[in-house]
Amino acid sequence: MNTSENPDFDDSILQLEMELLLEALVRQYGYDFRNYNKAHIKRRLIFRMQQLGLKSLSELQHQILHHTNILATILKDLSINVTEMYRDPSFYLSLRKEVIPLLRTYPYLRIWHAGCATGEEVYSFAILLKEEGLYERSQIYATDFNTEVLETAKKGIYPVSKIKEYTFNYQAAGGKNSFSDYYTARYDAVRFDPELRKNIVFANHNLVTDSVFAETHLIICRNVLIYFDRSLQNKVLNLFNDSLIMGGFLGLGSKENIMFSTVQDHFLILNPNEKIFQKKILK
């Protein structure tokens, strides 16, 4: 079969349409996905195109530009919303054992969850801080570019169907109490103790276009960089480097790394398996 005769699969046109659509998104609305990995973006856009019964990405672009109510849907499609409490429990166990003892030496702590999505990992770490007696001296900034997911994060309400898995994760992550101490169940949802939110600021921040966030002691940014191309990864890692105090910590997702990036010389590897790094102290 000569695929060039089949317009549905003419990737050169699709490629062009995708680039134009991404250009439209950044020029009209300021959301910049141009340096995201293309295979993922393409899948998501084609999925939305088909859901809406459209025939091309050009038609989808037209919808985005002329019917602004579709923008929220597109942003949700292209953002990273899948998360869970204590995702990779061993990561949290390592934070507890290797990072917390060092954080304990500071009189106050600034912690940044970058790309927090619906907030499950923010509450996970807030609970950990509480159990380690550090919560009261911590200020936690939880950011995402997607306002809609931040609203969910602020509420701290999650489906009860997930709790069994979260309880398993909590225990595997070295949890010290009964996990049910931290939430109240009602019908098919659980609500996390509003006390956990006291020192958390949920804020809109775009890693692609916004600048240095704060002088932080610990940045947690997991499974976000995997969506970015090399140049954007470098840009964001430099942003993290500039945001951290000397001796501060960076926790990435299990398949993410600072190796081969432009900041690798600025960090020590604290735990190679859990991808926890420490910014070097330079004299």
Binding site: A39, H40, I80, T83, I226, G253, K255
Partner: peptide, 10 residues
């Protein structure tokens, strides 16, 4: 397209 892998958690 450049015959490299990418990963997602979608």
């Amino acid at each position: 397209a450049d015959q490299t892998f990418s990963l997602t958690v979608e």
